[in-house]
Design a protein around this nucleic acid. Structure first.
Lengths: 150, 150
DNA sequence: CCCTTTTTGAAAAATATTTTCAGTAACATC
DNA sequence: GATGTTACTGAAAATATTTTTCAAAAAGGG
């Protein structure tokens, strides 16, 4: 289904600024920042403002028409690192984090990706979210609030 | 090896502000933001400034004493999403991205993590970095610059 | 074509991060 | 232990990013 239809069917209006942003994103071959989307979309709709880009991205993300990707390994929190183990699982309720190994388990997947995409896999980012043992027990009493943010 | 030794052996000075930050991070059970680290570390070294937290995190990250984790699913770039496929591989050189499926391959790993950690796995974030077919060919001529940022 | 409601863009506010710079402190050398 | 070099520090300012506010404009059902 075309993106404009999805918007309309979900009660969102199809406006010129949104159309410009949609076109830019539909043509994207790499993750674009809001600022980059603005620059490209202004060629289609010069009066476009950055705020509208942020708001439209929220909508498109909620409708799962776009996906977000991390650039430049930017991060938001720091943990002590244990040598050799490179992944983390964080409790969605209490935020307690533990590390786990897992690179061996991923090798098979990586080889398959390399065959399917032609890319060479050099590095990876894997992070899990879940419920720690303690929070699983309390869940029946007080369910954790669903993550609203993108 | 103790963190202070690692600092010293790599030519960094062991100072009171750094010691305070080290202690906070070593005791962390969840990913902490620079602001959160500041608040806790000021109890050990009241004159500490936020700038020093950022700078110390850069050092600790370079020495691989800390690991960074993404909080609240924050993101830095947007791509059009294809239904059902939830992972992306991005070329480190030209930044071209392609999606691939892979949830089935991860199930085994997730079950193992659940057994080992007691956590229940609810959600995951997997993103790969690599070289696209075109950039692999050109690599001999012009190697891609290594990612310096955290 | 009109009315209601959503959407828009500008400006301001709130947040987050980096740079600059003069003073301070670590530590190698004496 | 004193001393000199150099790295490190904190405050302030600069820069960057995202959100909020609000009056005006536009969508689209009637």
């Amino acid at each position: 289904m075309a993106w404009e239809e999805v918007l309309a069917q979900n009660g969102y209006r199809v406006t010129a600024p949104r159309r410009a942003i949609l076109l830019v994103l539909q043509g994207a071959t790499q993750p674009l920042t809001p600022e980059e989307i603005l620059a490209q979309a202004r060629q289609l709709h010069p009066s476009l403002g950055l705020v509208t880009v942020y708001r439209t991205l929220d909508v498109l993300n909620a409708l799962e028409l776009v996906r977000c990707a991390h650039r430049d390994r930017a991060c938001h929190g720091f943990l002590p690192a244990t040598q050799g183990h490179h992944h983390v699982i964080i409790c969605q309720k209490c935020h307690r984090a533990v590390e786990f190994p897992g690179d061996e388990d991923l090798e098979g997947l990586f080889r398959r990706i390399e065959e399917q995409t032609g890319y060479r896999v050099c590095d990876h980012l894997l992070q899990l979210a879940g419920l720690c043992p303690a929070c699983q027990k309390e869940e029946a009493i007080e369910p954790y609030p669903l993550e609203e943010k993108i």
